[in-house]
């Protein structure tokens, strides 16, 4: 019986600890075939960004490091890590992490997995430092341009309320676009 429980827990996630596969009213849950296609794309982007020639024979092994491929949770982990690794490897300008890579808005296909992707990025020793650098650079932008990163700011605020996730040690002070015209 315990094996069955274990299998169920592996397959569908433990709602008490992960909540990752629980349908949420506002979230669209990506179907597995689509998710797998996205994982492949993220994996090839990661390879290209890190200067590695994509060799399909390595794919299965690379995905397997995240668990049993029969479970959706494995593919979600793989997607998060390959996406985060691609963002890390291609980070020419740190502000693009804030304005593009992690600027998640509901119209993006990866919005559903935004927290998992950021979690994966933060596993890099200098991941947080890169985000901080990006925010410092963003201060040089106009208030309108800064506000384009609203998806990132919302992600950070949301994260602070999530059980099991640490609040990011960054403080975002944004000036409202109108604040300048009054000066």
């Amino acid at each position: 019986m315990s094996n069955v429980k274990q299998l169920f827990s592996n397959r569908y996630g433990n709602p008490k600890t992960s909540g990752i596969l629980e349908p949420k009213p506002t979230d669209v849950t990506m179907k597995l075939p689509e998710l797998k296609k996205r994982v492949w794309n993220a994996w090839t982007r990661f390879n290209e960004a890190s200067g590695v020639v994509t060799q399909p024979k390595n794919y299965v092994q690379d995905v397997k490091q995240f668990g049993d491929r029969r479970y959706k949770v494995t593919w979600i982990k793989a997607l998060a890590h390959f996406s985060a690794q691609a963002s890390y490897e291609s980070c020419l300008d740190a502000y693009m992490l804030v304005l593009n890579s992690f600027n998640f808005t509901p119209d993006r296909w990866d919005y559903e997995y935004r927290h998992e992707i950021l979690d994966a990025f933060l596993t890099y020793p200098d991941g947080l430092e890169l985000i901080k650098t990006g925010l410092e650079q963003l201060l040089e932008f106009t208030p309108q341009e800064q506000n384009e990163a609203h998806g990132f700011f919302e992600l950070v605020e949301e994260r602070g309320t999530q059980p099991g996730r640490d609040r990011l040690p960054i403080r975002v002070e944004r000036k409202l676009p109108g604040a300048y015209s009054a000066a």
């Binding site: 982007r45 290209e48 960004a49 691609a86 963002s87 490897e89 291609s90 980070c91 020419l92 300008d93 693009m96 593009n100 890579s101 993006r108 296909w109 990866d110």
Partner: peptide, 9 residues
């Protein structure tokens, strides 16, 4: 989406 990252690469 990821076109900006790929453009840098």
């Amino acid at each position: 989406d990821d076109v900006y990252e790929q453009a840098a690469v």
